[in-house]
Design a binder for these strands. Structure first.
Length: 710
DNA sequence: ACGGATCATACA
DNA sequence: TTGTATGAT
């Protein structure tokens, strides 16, 4: 599982920053009267007071532990304040925590490459910042030092009794005779201390950090002194640290691999690993894992800090434990609809804020069958191309579920028809969106060029007639749904499944179907909200014009053209772009290259036909997605969920932009038609000069301000 | 048949 | 590529 990578440089400065009981802090910021009190965040209050998912340090002192139930926590600590996770659509809603995590990331990313490792953790590569500081402003020259830096814990620094600990730390940091690596770490201490103070000042959240020469050690260190402290691992203390460290404390060794090391190899501490030759470990655990084990025993870990501030996938899921297992297909459909609503909303947020499009929709489910205890894991996950629009995602997810169900039932050769429903149930459902890529850079500016903003579009699109056109496509509940469910036109093909018919499609009991009405208020992109609020509409033109066009004349679509047609059409559009104001010429362009054709066709194949050698599949995929985007349904916004940050919205958006722009893959541009390339290059020109983020932001806002033309 | 909901990554 | 398994928080 773990893979060893060559150590790129043995004196990197890596930090791991971990928020302290993050969910609790988020809730305490919302309710400041909870600060300082023993507090826990709990979800699903129905059963035994709900499960604790975050516990404040005051509560921990009182003996409250994570994965206690709420009632249990009350027994141990009667004064404990239990705060429930927000619920939306009948499930836990973590958006508040995600957004709070984004606030933190945007601060921590200021001094070096930043990798968002989870909702409340990041890795930082501060090597460059530390080297720069060492060259220009070495710690030795410091006359004052932040209190926060002085509170650092430095592993291996012996604190003799009676000696002033902070004074020792100060001396260690200022030490002139330190080797280069220690000096770099000293700079890291100062940088991280400053970052943590900025986080506290700007978000009111405390965090802990580890500072070391690689990710593994930094991660290890960040957990050693919590909360609100930082720990440093100098090179000289690595051996002693690992020697007595239980293997399961090491990241990646907390599961089966760690257990195997203990049981099969008698390895209890990381130090115990040292006695095994590399070949022995490779022989037992494979070449990659073996090498990795041999390296980590020596404190070697070459894993790079990835520059990634955003998640690579979005998922929405829910479990239905035991008695709450879903027993009817329409119950499954109902919950799938809820999950897909949430997913769709988050995809819209991502598109709005980060200009990214997801390409793959995946459904995962778990099922149990009472007779077979092992049947839990076997429900297959299925995926398909992702089409934007809540109703489409719902439709596709449901089809994926049915496909999985057929396979699952086939696997067990079950043929229950109605009678034997009691042994069956779906115990978990989740939908996720992956393969998220940035929108090709030039497209937006070009689309913007083609149509000026038209605020009037909004009102027309929000008129009731334009809403819920697609909801009728969803099979209605009740008996009709039954038929639909049990003899579906297989929209997704699975090998070896051709022979299945409705006779062998028994499925779950349906007699107790509860009507699940597709709600009229759907959730929409915040881009609508923002524009209504008078905020910038910077990404709107492409989307809105696409939606507008779809609503105007849905049938008008063009399929399969070759590249010459693609190009000539582009030239044509470019020639008369002024006349095209209000229609989405660029979108037509992209649609014409949608290899899957119109989404109104129920058939979407799993395999993309890449017969067209002119364009790379990557570009085709992007065209496809852009075409699909035009089908986004526009509807009213739910008041419960806004995906914008709570503060400094505009500023953060701009920050997100400068980050994204840096990430544009130049090769993408090369794949565009020459004429478009020119436009993009002209557009990208100015931002090459400044290396300063503030300056860059202003340039970007110049180019993207809705009031100016590019 | 509860540690729930999300994420990431390696491997076949 | 898709689906599975593992691991972490």
């Amino acid at each position: 599982m773990p893979v060893s990578k060559p150590e790129s440089c043995d004196s990197r400065v890596i930090a791991h920053v971990d928020m302290d009981c993050f969910y609790v802090q988020v809730e305490q910021r919302k309710q400041p009267q909870l600060r300082g009190l023993p507090t826990a965040v709990v979800q699903y209050n129905e059963w035994k007071g709900g499960a604790l998912i975050a516990v404040s340090y005051e509560a921990r002192s009182a003996g409250v532990k994570r994965s206690m139930r709420g009632e249990e926590a009350k027994e141990v600590c009667p004064q404990i304040q239990l705060v429930q996770v927000p619920v939306a659509r009948g499930k836990a809603d973590l958006n508040g925590y995600r957004n709070a995590g984004s606030e933190v990331v945007s601060i921590l990313a200021r001094r070096g490459r930043c990798e968002r490792a989870s909702i409340d953790e990041v890795y930082l590569d501060l090597t460059d910042a530390a080297e720069t500081m060492l060259a220009e402003n070495p710690p030795q020259s410091l006359e004052t030092m932040d209190e926060e830096a002085l509170k650092s814990h430095i592993l291996g620094l012996n604190n003799e009794d009676g000696s002033d600990v902070k004074e020792n730390v100060r001396k260690w940091i200022l030490r002139c005779n330190a080797d280069h690596r220690d000096k770099l770490l000293a700079c890291g201490i100062l940088i991280v201390a400053e970052l943590r103070m900025q986080v506290l000042k700007e978000t009111e959240f405390t965090c802990s950090a580890g500072i070391a020469h690689n990710k593994m050690l930094a991660k290890l260190a960040s957990g050693m002194n919590k909360p609100a402290q930082q720990t440093v691992v100098p090179f000289s203390s690595v051996e002693g640290l690992l020697d007595t460290l239980p293997v399961r404390k090491m990241k990646q060794l907390g599961g089966k691999l760690g257990t195997s090391l203990q049981i099969d190899m008698g390895v209890n501490t990381v130090g115990d690993l040292l006695q095994f030759p590399e070949e022995k470990l490779q022989e037992r655990y494979g070449i990659n894992t073996g090498t990795w084990l041999w390296n980590i025993a020596r404190g070697i870990s070459g894993e790079a800090v990835k520059g990634r501030l955003l998640p690579k996938s979005h998922g929405s899921g829910k479990t239905f434990p035991g008695p709450r297992a879903l027993k009817t297909v329409s119950a499954v459909q109902h919950w799938l609809n809820q999950l897909c609503e949430e997913l769709s909303e988050r995809l819209c947020c991502d598109l709005d804020q980060n200009k990214r499009i997801a390409h793959t929709l995946t459904l995962h489910a778990r099922a149990y069958k009472s007779s077979d205890s092992d049947s839990q894991k076997k429900f297959p996950s299925k995926s398909c191309p992702l089409r934007y629009g809540t109703a489409k995602i719902q439709e596709d997810a449901f089809n994926l579920f049915q496909a999985g169900l057929r396979e699952y039932i086939g696997l067990y050769g079950v043929r229950t028809q109605g009678s034997d429903h009691s042994g069956w149930g779906i115990t978990s459902l989740s939908v996720s969106a992956s393969k998220i890529v940035p929108i090709p850079s030039g497209t937006r500016s070009i689309a913007k060029y083609f149509h000026g903003q038209s605020t009037s579009l909004f009102s027309s699109m929000q008129s009731p007639d334009n809403l819920n056109i697609e909801t009728t496509l969803l099979s209605p509940p009740g008996s009709e749904s039954y038929l639909e469910v049990n003899s579906p036109k297989p929209k997704i093909h699975f090998p070896g499944e051709e022979s299945w018919t409705e006779d062998t499609m028994p499925g779950l009991d349906l007699q107790e179907q509860k009507v699940n009405v597709v709600k009229d208020e759907d959730l929409s992109c915040s881009l609508l909200k923002k524009t209504q609020d008078g905020f910038t509409q910077d990404i709107s033109p492409l989307l809105l014009s696409g939606c507008f066009e779809q609503n105007q004349n849905k049938q008008q679509r063009v399929f399969s053209k070759d590249e010459s047609q693609f190009k000539s059409e582009h030239r044509e559009q470019k020639g008369k772009r002024l006349k095209d104001k209000g229609t989405s010429s660029i979108l037509k362009l992209f649609k014409s290259y949608n290899p899957l054709g119109s989404s109104s066709s129920p058939e979407h194949n799993k395999t993309v036909q890449s017969t067209d050698a002119q364009l790379t599949t990557d570009f085709q995929a992007r065209c496809h997605s852009l075409a699909e985007l035009s089908d986004v349904k526009l509807v009213k916004e739910s008041p419960t969920n806004s995906c914008s940050y709570s503060r400094d919205k505009d500023e953060r958006r701009r920050e997100a932009w400068s980050y994204k722009l840096d990430e544009i893959d130049p090769s993408v541009i090369d794949e565009l038609p020459p004429a478009i390339q020119d436009e993009i290059k002209a557009w990208m020109q100015p931002r090459k000069r400044p290396n300063n983020i503030v300056k860059r932001g202003s340039i970007i806002s110049h180019y993207f301000s809705p009031t100016k033309k590019s």
